[in-house]
Amino acid sequence: MSRRIHVAHYTSEQRLLGAVKGCRDAGLHVLDVRSPYPIHGLDELVGIPRSRLPIACLVGGVTGLGLATWFQYWTSATDWPIDVGGKPFDSLPAFAPVAFEVTILLAGLATVFGLLFRTTRLRAEIPEDELRVTDDRFVLVAVRPDADVSDAALARLWIATEAVHTSEYVEDER
């Protein structure tokens, strides 16, 4: 099974947003939108699910807090208790700073690793005509479900939405 992917380039955020609406009205399914900067309000339009990064962050933080607190307690009070300056072996208040720092560290690492895990490709091939996405172009990627939308309607849509460049290709669906 294969599907046809349509790509349209725009020169501004407004035109892009208009095009997204136009596509949806025209029955096209908007797969992705690429832009030089984040555009608010697109998530719902494009249908991006709520990110689970905050959960990763929380898990990392809780792990860090637990790990650091336990490890400090274990090394100072259980594994080798040593009298240091007359302080008790389990000097919990003194363990707070390190516990806090490790909490932050693991939360941050979890967030970043989570982000990298979900978004990055080391050998990304950016199509030659999309190079300007990181500069000043806005790209809309849509898929035409079967043949509901005619080629002509599509062409009209691109003209109506002031696309500066369009292309289409067939993607094999796995």
């Binding site: 040593i82 009298d83 240091v84 300056g85 007359g86 302080k87």
Partner: peptide
């Protein structure tokens, strides 16, 4: 040889600690 030795608390590597 303070019992509550200020030097001991601050050494990061436990190079100065109290004996029994």
């Amino acid at each position: 040889h303070c019992e509550n030795a200020p030097c001991e608390t601050v050494c990061p590597v436990l190079a100065t600690v109290h004996s029994e």
